[in-house]
Structures are given as C-alpha cells and as structure tokens.
Design a binder for these strands. Structure first.
Lengths: 248, 248
DNA sequence: CAGATATTGTCCGGTTTTGGACACTGGCGC
DNA sequence: GCGCCAGTGTCCAAAACCGGACAATATCTG
C-alpha cells in the first residue's frame, strides 16, 4: 500500500481472498512475464511454482503415449491459477501446462503456497472452490470431446478464451487451435470459414476476432456455459471487492 | 472390534487412513447397498451424502444441454469415493453420479464428512490426494474422447472396470457402454466383435468377460495406464495395512 | 407355453473426420 | 526488393462414425 510502484491486481482468486490471506501470500509472490509457449509444468515432473495469472492464457494438456496424442483439458486465465495438483498434495501430474497466449502473472513457490494453504482455512476453502470449478471445466471438455463436432468445440474454445482475455481479437494459429482441440489443422480452417460466412468471426493471419458472441454460443450448442456458471457460483460475483493493489 | 458382526473393509481410502482419522468417520458411516441405476448425485442439486464404495462401480457423468449429450467422466469403485465436490466446498456440481454395476458401500452425510475433513489435516491430505487422482482420470477421459477410436476407448473402459471389480466377467449391456462412451450402441457391438475375434474377450447377453488383459491394454494404445499409475503413486501401494474391520 | 420385452446382430445412406499432400500468400529478415 | 517460410487454402481417397431402422434372439412374466 506504499505509494511507490503499486499495481492493481486483476487475478480473481487473489482479489477474492481476505486481506489476511492475501498477506500470507504476498511476500512470496513474484510478478513474472508469461511468454508464448513457455512451459509452466511438465508431465510427471515436480511442480516448483504456481502461477496466478493476470493476463494471457495457460493450457492444461494431457499427454498420452505417442507425441500426437495430446489434447487440452482446461484453460486458465486471469480468473484462475495453475498448479492445482500442488493444492491436492501431489507434487506432479501427468499433464503439462504451458502458455498459449502470452501475458503475465504472479508466481509463488509451491511450498510457500502449500504452507499458506495449510495455515489458513479460508484460503484453503477459496482455492479448493477454484479447484472444483476447474474440475467442472475439465469434465465439460471431456463431454465436448465425446459428443461435439469440431465447430461446436471450436466455438466453445473461442468463447472460453474470449472470457479470459476480455478481448474479441485473439492471436492464434489454426495449427495451435487444432492441437488444443485434438483435431486436424485443416478441420479448424474449415470450421473458421463456416464461422466467417455466418459473420460470427473475422479471421486474418494468426488472428481470430469474435464479432457475434451470441451466435457462437448457439453454435457451441450447450457445450459452453455450465462450467462458466459454476465458476461464478462458487467464486462469487466478479466485483466482490475493489481491485487489490500490490507493490512490485 | 467386538466379536459380533464385524466386516472387513475393502475400500482403499478407508483402509489407507490412520486409526484416528477412521475413528472420526466411523460413527457416521452407514453400510448401504448400491442398486443398479441408483442415482447418488443429481446435476446441480445439493449432495446430501458421500459414498465410500466397497463393491460395484459408480459413474460420474457430465450432462450437457439436451438429453442425448451426456458422457462418463470418471468411474469409481472400491478404490475411491463419490462426492468429491463436497470436499472442495461445493455442495453441488453439474454432474450426475449413479451406479453402473451394483454393489454396496459406506455412506456418510456430507456435513459429517466435511466436518472431519476440516478437523484432521491428515484426513484432508488423503482425501485430496484421491481428488487429484480422480482429476487425472477425468483428464485422460477427455484425452481418450478427443483422440481415441471407439475400440481404444472401449478397451480402456473395460480395463478400468475390471480393476475395480477385480473380476473378469462384467454384467453390462452394449447400450449402457455406448451411453458411457458417448457413442452409438452399434459401435460398441462392432468393437466387441472385433475383440472377440482377437480372443481378447468373450461376450454373452449382458456380459463381457476379459480373457486377455494384456491384449486389451495394447488395444487401448496408451490411453490406459497413466491415471492408474498416478493413483498408486499418490494413494500408496495396495496393501499398506491389513484390512480394517468395521462392525455393522 | 405364449406373449412381451430387453438385448443384440445387421444393414443402409450420409456426414464428419482423418492422413497426407501440395499450392498459395503475407510478412519478415537480410 | 527478394527470398524464405510460417501460416493458410484446398483437394483427395479412405476410414470412422452417425442416425435410424429392422430383424433375430434371449430372457422374463404370467
């Protein structure tokens, strides 16, 4: 709260916690840039630190046997955090986490977070509620993958990304989208063309811009919405408190 | 430990916990049958009680908009428990849980479990480690749904069910398997025929019997194994302690 | 034993997706 | 100003899968 170099926090988890809980974490928080394709966690390797994201998008990806067998499980933006396994007492998991859209966040050493997690019941409750919402998101990813067409899944993905970037224009390649959805690159191209014909998005090289959000939600056909509602339900309304300040 | 009506516990979570943690739960545990198709949790309705399964299989299913849009996220047998959202501080979730293969288990009121969860650090750690393993299972379900063929997914499912029933013969209909995998019933029939031709299983009405486990693992093609290994890693080896006894 | 019902076997056409390939293009570095 | 190349548009044949339907066979009920 000193006058020098304060920065407002956007991360909704950090914002939602009590002052005392925040005080537990603040000494250990480091503001760090999140560069494109930066790997925050590797499969089956110890998770050293956890990131509360301020801007950008991180992907949680399950990797099976064989390099081509991977797909996105969940995405994390300023509404969330990476490293959920740390909370659950697993120092590692068979999933990778990497930055899909660059931005920045606040990192904290896994042990420090874990210590605070053990110390404060209210912090624990908050972080576990977020864990629940991420679980729900993963569940609906599984549902979307089982029953959804490429168009439906792509629409869902674009909407989820938009929510987290709070910006209609997203810099992504078809190749990357295909990797995330676990489909062929050409399939993404075709689906985007359909969206463009219906005036739902405009595309350019490395860029997709949403121009009809409601239309996309209709395309997503029920695959978008439930996890988002669940997040709001358990993490409370967006503006519970004014943005917290942090000095850097 | 009285001589009358003691029953050995098979549930691996109950078996893995310390005596004192078990003592916290035991007064509230009720042995209950789990009947076929019994619904243990409904989507978006308060979870009243949690089940530590002793025998049988429960399915966690995500239901989207439209009745046909549902698919299995995770399965739970004697290695686990239902009601993970209760641990995470959410009294409900947009998923259903119901009994897929009948058996029995020990139920406990959600508030009682939650109270014990808050009271004992070690109990909390254990239950959260299980939560992690269930998350990993759900992640690989999402991966399987995205990238796996019907055969691969069916092989994975049969192996997971076999692990939980510890029995090679399973009583299930193609219709039900199709519902779980989120595919057409005829697709399951065709895949089972392929398995039968390769002498991996034998089938009968309402019955599938695994006769070549290793062969099925090969069919599953990397989709089976990782979640199972993660469970063993975080929940410890199977026979950490002798089976606990409970009087009923 | 005679339905009635549940379950499985099978077939169809049509759609979606895949794997692989190749041409085109916009923008960057030199 | 030119070449390079990541990124995109497009095509093909083959496979997988779907929705729907109907027949055949177990199993159950009375």
């Amino acid at each position: 709260m000193t006058a020098t170099a304060t920065k407002s926090l956007r991360n909704r988890i950090l914002n939602a916690m009590s002052d005392s809980d925040f005080a537990l974490l603040q000494p250990h928080l480091d503001s760090t840039p999140l560069r494109f394709r930066q790997r925050l966690q590797s499969a089956n390797r110890s998770i050293t630190d956890v990131h509360f994201i301020e801007d950008g998008i991180a992907s949680v990806v399950a990797v099976g046997a064989g390099e081509r067998r991977q797909t996105e499980i969940a995405i994390v933006g300023y509404e969330g955090m990476t490293g959920v396994p740390v909370l659950l007492g697993a120092d590692r998991s068979p999933c990778e986490v990497f930055i899909q859209v660059e931005g920045y966040g606040h990192s904290i050493a896994a042990e420090k977070l874990r210590a605070a997690f053990q110390q404060s019941r209210s912090l624990r409750d908050l972080l576990l509620r977020y864990t629940h919402s991420q679980w729900v998101q993963a569940s609906f990813t599984a549902l979307a993958n089982a029953r959804g067409s490429i168009s439906e899944r792509l629409a869902r993905w674009l909407l989820m990304a938009r929510d987290r970037l709070e910006c209609d224009r997203m810099a992504l390649t078809h190749e990357y989208l295909a990797l995330m959805l676990g489909v062929r690159r050409a399939g993404v191209t075709a689906a985007l063309h359909k969206f463009e014909q219906k005036a739902l998005v405009t595309t350019a090289r490395r860029s997709v811009t949403i121009i009809d959000r409601v239309g996309l939600e209709q395309i997503a056909n029920g695959l978008y919405g439930a996890p988002e509602a669940e997040y709001e339900r358990v993490l409370g309304p967006k503006a519970t408190r004014s943005h917290r300040a942090i000095h850097t």
